[in-house]
Design a protein around this nucleic acid. Sequence first.
DNA 1: CTTACTATGTGAAACATTTAACGACTTCTC
DNA 2: GAGAAGTCGTTAAATGTTTCACATAGTAAG
Lengths: 217, 217
Amino acid sequence: MDTEPTKIPQATAKRLPLYYRFINNLHSQGKLRVSSKELSEAVKVDSATIRRDFSYFGALGKKGYGYNVEYLLSFFRKTLDQDETTEVALIGVGNLGTAFLNYNFTKNNNTRIQVAFDADKRRVGTEVGGVKVEHIDDFENKIENIKVAILTVPSNAAQGMAERLIEAGVTAILNFTPARITVPPHVRVHHIDLAVELQALVYFLKHYPLEDGEEEE
Amino acid sequence: MDTEPTKIPQATAKRLPLYYRFINNLHSQGKLRVSSKELSEAVKVDSATIRRDFSYFGALGKKGYGYNVEYLLSFFRKTLDQDETTEVALIGVGNLGTAFLNYNFTKNNNTRIQVAFDADKRRVGTEVGGVKVEHIDDFENKIENIKVAILTVPSNAAQGMAERLIEAGVTAILNFTPARITVPPHVRVHHIDLAVELQALVYFLKHYPLEDGEEEE
DNA sequence: CTTACTATGTGAAACATTTAACGACTTCTC
DNA sequence: GAGAAGTCGTTAAATGTTTCACATAGTAAG
Ligand SMILES: NC(=O)c1ccc[n+]([C@@H]2O[C@H](COP(=O)([O-])OP(=O)(O)OC[C@H]3O[C@@H](n4cnc5c(N)ncnc54)[C@H](O)[C@@H]3O)[C@@H](O)[C@H]2O)c1
Ligand SMILES: NC(=O)c1ccc[n+]([C@@H]2O[C@H](COP(=O)([O-])OP(=O)(O)OC[C@H]3O[C@@H](n4cnc5c(N)ncnc54)[C@H](O)[C@@H]3O)[C@@H](O)[C@H]2O)c1
């Protein structure tokens, strides 16, 4: 569990799944080795940043050679716990929820939406993307071991649902509603606020014109 | 256009739409004033950070009083160009694309999806969320003034479509595909990689257990 | 074996962002 | 109208992240 030598910076941790995916792609393509420069072009992260990120885990590469794809892949598979599947619950089978269920993060992935809940009786009992939709009132009985939830309910239901989730043992929530939910300190919430993302993009477009030569994240 | 005194930090710029939304809420609720502390609790951003963010735009508040909601709202409306609507095109009317069309970022918002495109002839001609779906081959004729595109096509079509978009004059892309696209320097791309977000959340859950007292973004 | 090349891993610098702390001014209360 | 309480705006410190640049060690080739 505490395999890490010391704590990895958060910025690095957020890039790990990205690295993993691209290393996986290289592996499928039969590539045997890769340099930080090549990887940099693929994932659009500065090559020095990649080397620094990798170096937090020790010396994964060889000087003058680069990184062995096979080794890198197996290292990240271990580090990202790709061998054990994490079960996820989805709350709110509306527009967004349905899209996620149909997708279900199946490829190259250790996460799977195991069960979905909705308040609308017409949806309950149906199956979307191979996942059964249960009624939200049965919810406490059906999530036993699940620690991670995706929240795609209307925003006015978000805080209340979050509290029920936490009460039932959930400790990580991916919140797609615009509501900023309040949770106890042991619970982790990541907000993905799509309207904000779009507006921020427009703001940048208008106020930070990219002159040639400037790049970004 | 260059109304800003000096360049605002990117981290601040990304929070502006969030502030705007909450100030808007307060205004609808009839609140007349608000302190950085109250706002902090609502948006989950440290109050010092909020004061610092606002201060980039000059002195918006009054000492000992806080901020006048009406004034703040009208200031941000101006700053975020909420009076002119930005037209957006959506490419790829699949699971995700359909969800976005049905939602269409209508509330409190200056962005609107004006037109959608798909390669599948069965979808063309239909209307989703009040937006007409056009065939991707008619695309160059129909986006005239549009500068912003949301990309929700399969990942193997992403790079090619991005190039066509840019060729047609698009300069900002919100990319939901896992592909990291390559674009010329004058084009801005924001990646929203949902699978990565979910995996990162799981990684944090397992490797960065939150002890009581720790909070985060 | 020797020489030329390559690409890592990292110290140090640069840059960006957040947080603490507090003086100054406003409002509120009596 | 005086004193207490409240809250901004900002200076300075702390923290976090990215990038530069290069010594070092391994590869590749003759
Ligand atoms: N669709 C988008 O593109 C989009 C974009 C940005 C933000 N969002 C946000 O994501 C959330 C979901 O959006 P959507 O478009 O899927 O909405 P939606 O209305 O289509 O879906 C919400 C679903 O939640 C169900 N629901 C309501 N209360 C519930 C409860 N207490 N427990 C369980 N289920 C409940 C409803 O029956 C419905 O099926 C909203 O908060 C929305 O603001 C959506
Ligand atoms: N659905 C999700 O929850 C989810 C999650 C993470 C990532 N993604 C990514 O988002 C993207 C879209 O996902 P989705 O589930 O909506 O896929 P989807 O297959 O349901 O939709 C893709 C749509 O794009 C259309 N299309 C294909 N080629 C096109 C082209 N050249 N021009 C225009 N349209 C074209 C297809 O006809 C289809 O309607 C994918 O890259 C996927 O990896 C989706």
